[in-house]
Design a protein around this nucleic acid. Structure first.
Lengths: 233, 233
DNA sequence: AAGTGGTCTAGACCACTCC
DNA sequence: GAGTGGTCTAGACCACTTA
């Protein structure tokens, strides 16, 4: 045997991948148990477990106690988007970042914001509007509502020198959150801010974050026309 | 001590999360080594490792040999989108699925498709256009190019009864792929197909898949107006 | 009742990287 | 060189699920 004697969990993962890929194991098939595979590969069961768990996490295998491990019949593709702080996103593209605070006020948010934050109607929040610039050109428009009860210190923060985005990342740890992606046409105001024609299709990210049951912030980011979100895997 | 004596890796993960969250450990801080934490929690180092690895995978911790483990200063949020087969996506909403094959032909793809698939210009591919319906109403328009060299069997598949989407999932294993999300305005044809006004902003998913170095398929999915992609985490 | 995955342990060696 | 994380082992017990 000239085969390498290495039997790391990556080796086993790759071999399992190869067997699925070569259709030796087909979608829906039951594959051997961890104990059997450990015997076959000459390694500890924990090592096999690590490899199979990895593949189950990415949706390629389905595992159930007693029932065993199957090749997923309908592999649900999991696309992972990395969403860094906007400044870093822009700098990663090699562009110079700048940030323009368009205004802050305290007001009652529109109903849909109240809804997603599950706030009683009439609650007043801090409203922040800002523009992120890349090389002097508009990159994304940020419309944010912050719950000052959750992070009182933001009322005294200098949001001209640090974006609310970054201030919150550094100062408002959160336990939960969600992202939604959608498309929207630029209205007159957005067209002006993002320097595009009215009606242009824009991609929008809506994000909310929570500290346990306490809502922290809800934000909508409208990206400049043509923006693409690239997902891995 | 009335604290429970359970010390599973989830327990440890949650306790580490709590310390980060309570700002006992702040962004950029070095946290104790695995050995120290194992001693503190009274468990094996492997258990601590499992907990910390989990948090590092989600981007909350940064780990380096010798340098130790730090709380990530700029936690990169990883949003995970689950992208199932369109039929299952529709059925999960409790709607009836149907699928209309609009046409197939063999042709030379437009330059941008040739580009992303890295094919020599002039290569002829199978072109498939279809509409996914939910409860009889248009849900998404699919415009797909398939490399018949990679999956010759598709030329004889009955794409009326099974969508190309599902046929490929079941018959064309792939090793790599990528997703891109963007916004586009409906042109006259799309407006007609999706039963919306011309110029409506639509969300678009572009997907390509590969079998090693061999391109399999490139597809663009235009969703009906108002569609949202919901990401977890 | 029994089979399978899920997890934990105690120990070991290795790989990397900072000093 | 030394400290830290990365991984593997052999064994064990438990939890869940199906038969």
């Amino acid at each position: 045997m000239t085969a390498p004697e290495t039997r790391s969990w990556q080796t086993i993962r790759d071999e399992v991948l190869r067997r699925i890929h070569s259709r030796e194991w087909r979608p829906g098939d039951l594959i051997p148990s961890e104990a059997d595979l450990a015997a076959e590969f000459g390694c500890a069961r924990a090592t096999v477990n690590r490899a199979l768990r990895e593949l189950a996490d990415t949706g390629l295998l389905e595992r159930r106690r007693k029932a065993g491990t199957r090749v997923a019949p309908n592999p649900v593709r999991k696309a992972t988007l990395s969403i860094p702080v906007t400044r870093l996103e822009i700098e990663a593209r090699g562009a110079a970042y700048a940030h323009v605070l368009l205004g802050t006020d305290r007001a009652t948010p529109p109903p849909h914001v109240q809804g997603v934050l599950r706030l009683p109607s009439g609650t007043r929040l801090l409203h922040i509007r800002a523009l992120h610039m890349a090389d002097g050109r508009p990159y994304a428009y940020e419309d944010r509502w912050v719950n000052p009860d959750a992070v009182p210190a933001i009322l005294t923060a200098d949001l001209d020198s640090i974006s609310a985005n970054e201030w919150l990342v550094a100062n408002a740890p959160f336990s939960d959150g969600s992202f939604t992606f959608l498309a929207e046409s630029a209205d007159a105001e957005l067209a002006k801010l993002l320097d595009c024609a009215e009606g242009t299709a824009l991609i929008v990210i809506e994000r909310t974050t929570w500290d346990g049951a306490t809502p922290i912030t809800a934000v909508r980011l409208h990206y400049r026309p043509g923006h693409r979100l690239q997902a891995g895997l």
